[in-house]
Amino acid sequence: MTGCKHILIAEDDSFLLSLLELQCSSLNMQTCCVENGEQLITEALSYQYDIILTDIQMPLCDGIQAMQILRRLGYDRPIFAMSADRLNCEGFDCILQKPVDIDLLARLCEQTPQQPKVQLEINSELTSLFYQNLAQLSQDFTTALQQEDFMTMQQICHKIKGGAASFGHMHLSQLADRMQQRLVTESPESSILQESRQFLLILQQSGAGNETA
């Protein structure tokens, strides 16, 4: 197995988070940083990380709750906690005293095996199904936009967000996510219609790109 290990760091203190990110990068690890327990759970469930390093006291959901939720969901990869207080809690692979001894963390990370990566298998039949669906969603979005049916537009964005990323359309997926959030929060009088038209153009181009491929 080659390549560097991926570590997910959760810490609500932005200074400490930046420091840990720098230290882990210097240990040749690829880092992802989050600031609360909810983000920690979502990111961890992407199964991209070899190690999780989490603070205990964080907003929305603390480090212990986040670990317990992940373990309950069958997450069996290493989770290290860091705490300024003495902590005795089952479920963590290791509890580090704050401030974190970076040499100790380095040794622990070195002993942690890199997780094998499993590629998503997508064949031509599946790709074809995806583009047929995208073309239909594009038509539906056009109709919904003409009727200023924001609820349907939201639902279409939601579907595109979930599907496009699996087929390599990361940008489209991110745009759909942003568009969906805008449609929830913005009033019809705002610039949302103009943005929706721009989104539709990108959506049509994403589908058209495949037809010419």
């Binding site: 469930l45 992407s46 199964y47 969901l73 069958g74 990566k117 496009a164």
Partner: peptide, 22 residues
Amino acid sequence: SIKMGAATFIVKPFSGDKILAA
């Protein structure tokens, strides 16, 4: 989902690692 008895949770988009874990 956990309270209602779900075994686990997959966040879309799908990946090979997420499906394998489930």
